[in-house]
Write a protein that binds this DNA or RNA. Structure first.
Length: 549
RNA sequence: GCGCCUGUAGCUCAGUCGGAUAGAGCAUCUGCCUUCUAAGCAGAGGGUCGGGGGUUCGAAUCCCUCCGGGCGCGCCA
């Protein structure tokens, strides 16, 4: 935590200095310097404190620098402090501090930079949760990639994370699914049928019907077809997610909420809290009390609970299971739903922060520039399985996480296929494979690195490319903290590309296996650290780190 | 009509709490393999950050307004 160390150093020194007369140090930024700026870490503190000190930013900067400099702790971490431009303060990190970080990476490996941000808090993350009315399509893939990576990241900083998939197995959509399969079954057996107007028209419905054995006497009701279809489709969904390296802790079945009268209990509870009232023979949830634009029906006048009733109950069920925090990952087309679910959390007395809903913009799909429709109902869609089969799991996951959740993702299938050898995922994986290859070569020549050996002279790593690499590696803990703070895995994807770039550049300029034995070991040590961070980063976004390509 | 998201290089997009000369990949052009993997490296060109106004030491970022794109607005799920 290089940046945090410097932050504490600055505020500590400023507080102690009586001359300045500061009681409280304001918030200030501390970031990695842009490439064209001389220096490693920069801060804007001079701008912020200028007013307080009643001087111009450059003068404030001078005062601050004077206060920090000439101190033993400062000297160990910071080699030089410079005032730049209109008031930025730039710090130069000592090589000794960088070597120390390097040592720590190799010693702690996967635990390097481990921060206990989560403190064992129970957090549940629910994602994909597509209705089992058809195979997963490419949009679900984005939700899966975001949810699973976020879970990995949160898990790595000390949260107790559980991943869950919510299965909607009741309601109109499911009835329609049953009707659709039933119709196709009859059709296959020579009966003339009228296919339901709004039924599911995809070819996959026929394939399900085709799986049904001929002998279904006594099971002609829609119920049989419904269950058969759900089970069949869930089988596909589970298989596709497994192929995508997504493992769930629990598959929660909606109808279970009704077995224990949980929905009735929810309604009674909210009635008691005066958030449910009756009007026109229906029960309404008073979501307007929490900023929703209108109240919402939870039980229709025909006594059927709505989808929202299940959803509210499901969230209560999660809290009752002891989770401190819930994360839902939804496609942006559900954004109209956010307010009412959020309202239900507050109605029950939970803090609004206890539920975080992450919306991801839908993936628009095109094939050679031609937009493709993506409706499950019409049956025209590209499945997640097709995409995984075509571009591979790694490229697919990487691609989904290369942008923030809020940006529209345009996925051109032809382009994705054509680009696959140039895909950035290979660039990163290649860096890892290259490092592995160097280690193999080194071993052939009898150089076998043992990181626990303390006689490797890291001081030999003097090239600017080497120091740059270490600085990038030392940023890893901050990167994780950033990803956690913003609930956004895409930072990891950007980082790992930058790290790979710095490595490839280094590889091109400097040879590891040379005549100088001490230098070989120092460089192997550095590469070992790069390998550890590459692997860890790739793991967090669910991408493999191959030893050979 | 109302609400959410969005507009940055030819294309696809990054840009953390408002920071320095706005970045990356692709595409285009120019160099680099007798040496640890060329799925690589180095370099070049390419910008009124949708338009206008405001806030301030400083705005792609915050506020107002206009224009464009996506999505959502049921006693559907």
């Amino acid at each position: 935590m290089l940046i945090e160390e410097i932050r504490e150093l600055i505020s500590g020194r400023l507080r102690k200095d009586k001359k300045l007369g500061i009681t409280q140090v304001p918030d200030f930024s501390l970031e990695v310097c842009p490439a064209e700026i001389e220096g490693d870490i920069s801060t804007n503190i001079a701008f912020i404190m200028a007013k307080q000190l009643k001087v111009s930013p450059p003068k404030a900067g001078k005062l601050i620098i004077d206060t920090i400099q000439n101190n033993k702790t400062t000297g160990e971490i910071i080699q030089k402090i410079e005032l730049a431009g209109k008031g930025f303060i730039n710090f130069f990190i000592t090589n000794e501090k960088l070597y120390k970080e390097l040592l720590e990476i190799c010693r702690k490996e996967n635990d390097y930079g481990k921060q206990d941000i989560g403190k064992g808090k129970k957090i549940q993350i629910e994602f994909v949760s597509a209705n089992p009315t058809g195979p997963l399509h490419i949009g679900h893939g984005r939700g899966a990639a975001i949810g699973d990576s976020l879970a990995r990241i949160l898990d790595s900083v000390g949260y107790d994370v559980k991943k869950e998939y919510y299965i909607n197995n009741r309601g109109k959509q499911i009835d329609l699914l049953g009707e659709s399969v039933k119709a196709r079954y009859k059709e296959l057996h020579g009966e003339k049928i009228e296919f339901p107007d709004d039924g599911y028209k995809g070819e996959y419905i026929k394939s399900i019907a085709d799986e049904i054995l001929d002998d279904i006497k006594g099971k002609e009701g829609t119920q049989f077809f419904k269950e058969f279809a759900i089970n069949h489709i869930l089988g596909w969904i589970k298989r596709d997610l497994r192929d995508f390296d997504v493992e769930y802790d629990r598959w929660f079945v909606e109808s279970d909420l009704y077995k224990q009268n949980e929905v009735e209990n929810m309604i009674e509870e909210l009635k008691g809290r005066d958030f449910i009232y009756e009007e026109n023979n229906a029960l309404w949830f008073k979501s307007t009390a929490f900023g929703d634009e209108k109240d919402r029906v939870v039980v229709r006048s025909d006594k059927q609970p709505t989808y929202l009733a299940s959803d509210i109950t499901y969230h209560y069920d999660k809290f009752n299971r002891g989770f401190d925090k819930l994360i839902d990952i939804w496609g942006a087309d559900h954004h109209g739903y956010v307010k009412r679910v959020q309202a239900s959390i507050e109605a029950m007395g939970y803090s609004p922060e206890a539920l975080k809903i992450i919306l991801y913009q839908l993936v628009s799909l095109s094939r050679a520039g031609k937009p493709q429709p993506m409706s499950t109902r019409s049956g025209e869609f590209v499945t997640l399985k097709e995409v995984i089969d075509e571009v591979g799991k790694d490229a697919c996951r990487f691609f989904f996480l290369i942008r923030g959740a809020n940006s529209h993702l345009d996925f051109d299938l032809e382009l994705a296929k054509k680009q696959s050898p140039d895909n950035p995922v290979y660039y990163v994986q290649y860096a890892h494979a290259r490092i592995c290859s160097i280690f193999k070569e080194a071993e052939k020549s009898g150089y076998r690195l043992r990181t626990e050996d303390s006689n490797v002279d890291l001081g030999l790593l003097k090239e600017s490319e080497e120091l740059n690499l270490i600085k990038k590696l030392a940023y890893f803990p901050e990167l994780i903290a950033l990803s956690v703070r913003t609930y956004d895995p895409h930072w990891v994807t950007s980082y790992v590309q930058e790290l790979a770039k710095i490595f490839h550049n280094y590889y091109q300029k400097h040879r590891v296996i040379t005549e100088n034995k001490d230098l070989i070991f120092a460089r192997l040590f550095l590469l070992q650290a790069v390998k550890i961070i590459l692997r860890k980063s790739l793991y967090l976004i669910g991408v493999n780190a191959p030893e050979r390509m």
